[in-house]
């Protein structure tokens, strides 16, 4: 029998493992294609602020979905324009605070 050439040996024992490594590495990095979306306490977290109210009625169809942004609009615009207006009397608000 003619022995396999050095080139074939290298291909089988180096080329194939290398190809496997490359494929697996590619898969790993393809999965985390959206870096920085995850919140980690203590690290800066970039995002646009959001303010949610619940939908006025249960979202049963397109109508409910369309109503959602409308319900948010007043609060969202108010947050920018009326930010410096006199704060209404809120002496009797309650609640709690916490840090982490």
């Amino acid at each position: 029998m003619n022995a396999v050439s050095i080139l074939q040996t290298v291909l089988v024992f180096v080329g194939i493992p290398a190809a496997v490594v490359v494929v697996i590495t590619g898969l790993v990095y393809a999965r985390s294609s959206r870096p920085g979306k995850r919140y980690r306490p203590g690290r800066p977290f970039d995002f646009t602020p959001v303010w949610f109210l619940s939908a006025p009625e249960p979202m049963s169809g397109v109508d409910g979905r369309a109503a959602l942004p409308g319900a948010r609009r007043a609060e969202l615009t108010a947050g920018e324009t009326a930010a410096d207006s006199a704060v209404a009397a809120h002496g009797d608000t309650g609640g709690a605070s916490d840090r982490w």
């Binding site: 306490p41 977290f45 995002f47 608000t93 309650g94 709690a96 605070s97 916490d98 840090r99």
Partner: peptide
């Protein structure tokens, strides 16, 4: 999240 602050505010009725 960045300031690591949480505030819960309830109105008079709530």
């Amino acid at each position: 999240p960045n300031q690591r602050v949480l505030e819960i505010v309830t109105g008079a009725e709530a």
